[in-house]
Design a protein around this nucleic acid. Sequence first.
DNA 1: CCGATTCTGAAATTTCTGATACAGCTTTCG
DNA 2: CGAAAGCTGTATCAGAAATTTCAGAATCGG
Lengths: 290, 290
Amino acid sequence: MGKSRSNSPADQPSLAERIRHEMDAFTPSEKRAAHLLLSHYPFAGLDTVAEFAARAGISAPSVLRFVTRLGFGGFPDFQKHLREELEAQLLSPLAKASPSDKGQGAPALSSFADAVIGNLRATVENIAPAEFDAVVTLLSDSRRHIHFTGGRFTGALARYAESHFRIVRSHVDYIEGQSALWRDRMIEIGRRDVIVAFDIRRYQEDVIALCETAAKQGATVVLLTDPWLSPIARVARHVLPAHVVAPSNWDSSAGLLLLTEAVVAAVTKRLWETAKPRMEAVERLRNEKA
Amino acid sequence: MGKSRSNSPADQPSLAERIRHEMDAFTPSEKRAAHLLLSHYPFAGLDTVAEFAARAGISAPSVLRFVTRLGFGGFPDFQKHLREELEAQLLSPLAKASPSDKGQGAPALSSFADAVIGNLRATVENIAPAEFDAVVTLLSDSRRHIHFTGGRFTGALARYAESHFRIVRSHVDYIEGQSALWRDRMIEIGRRDVIVAFDIRRYQEDVIALCETAAKQGATVVLLTDPWLSPIARVARHVLPAHVVAPSNWDSSAGLLLLTEAVVAAVTKRLWETAKPRMEAVERLRNEKA
DNA sequence: CCGATTCTGAAATTTCTGATACAGCTTTCG
DNA sequence: CGAAAGCTGTATCAGAAATTTCAGAATCGG
């Protein structure tokens, strides 16, 4: 997204402040525009030039001159700045919502935690209940065969999911995403199979290929991804996006883990009748070995 | 029902809720549009159709069909509704006080998320800052060799940590906890080695044994565990406990993941001078292969 | 009070955006 | 397996919105 001008979202002084400060340098009609904008900040500026002009009681060109004087390349530029400022402002209270900065606590850890918690909240907000339920139902169908897979980092999450599912029900396995080995196994993938794929940016070619192949053969694909959606979404029946941005050089997978654990919990509950004896049996076997 | 323009600003249910609710009635591209909008609500919808379409990875007409299906007369209508909703929400501070619209967001998911968030808070509270910093310092020492390990479920977290550390620095590997294979490798474990072990209840015999053996040979052990502390704590130099209780038959590993990611972030930052070129090199190699 | 400068708005112009028609493709259903 | 239905993107168009032009109005200085 190439922004044309110098309207960086990091301008410390909000545009409103700047306008107040430069108010006396404005011409009369510019003042009227400024007053309107400030009195309904920033929504008045999100309408069209014509509407803004009418509401301010001035002409369209005057509005244009006004935003030009503020240093914007044009009206769209101006609106974009307002939107970005608004978005930043709306998201920030969430970041500083928790006053957990008691001075103590590794600051790195505590701020990181705040960001992660924000991610979890946002993730839950954006999940469609029907989608979540559909996934739970799908994975509770004991006639289906379930295969988990993931990329470089998300592969670990796939393993995590698999290790739980394996205990709750049968016909569960993990497919190595990176190697070319999965191609052989594809011959057995069909209509009754479910692929649960984890994939966040940068999306991984081999995982995408795996899912496309599986989908082509009639398998049902469930995707856990970031809000920008892996290309796998094209072939996926169900998509569960999670927010991943954290104050780090890496993305955070906490949201994906949350979804995974919630699904595991729900499926376990739904299959409890059969899962309980199964889990006891697993436990017995483990103890014998030890 | 006639598709009138019933977009009065007083529609009780926010548009976001309605979209979440009707999600499964959407076509694939409509879902992509919906996901984009929900993940950046409502700002994504304030751009132009073209930009929205590009960001969602679909065509402009699909976006138009999406907003039409939502019952709007056109895209400007849709935008107007978003602006009004936003303005109303911003003016009533009460509206956004509790973002957990429990109206019916998958109840299982949302209550589960609340529990997990509580765990994260509690985890951060109970971490000794000095301990956290000491772990970061230890793992930033490039002369050390780092080995990750874990149990049945936590092994996935160890792999997750390993996959990140492997890129940031050298001398990193993963030791399979369950198998007896690690006994052979113990001969190479000594004073310069660090074992990072993940272990929560029920604590796993073989992982415990691994750590005890390694400690006996002079290795430094870092333990990530639950608040009841794995027996490994006795031989561990540093212990980072995380809360794990969730409304499920299983424990939640989200706290452990949080700690892991926070450590990864901190180490990456501290080693940035050497990590950056290393990461670029890794990236180059990956691209060549592809 | 007059001329110069600045400001302002109506109208013309240009750019760009939203909307539509249509054809190819996929999926579904018999 | 084939036909029907539905979905999606390309190309295109109409129209609206932003921008520029320019002439008239207001203001200011002398």
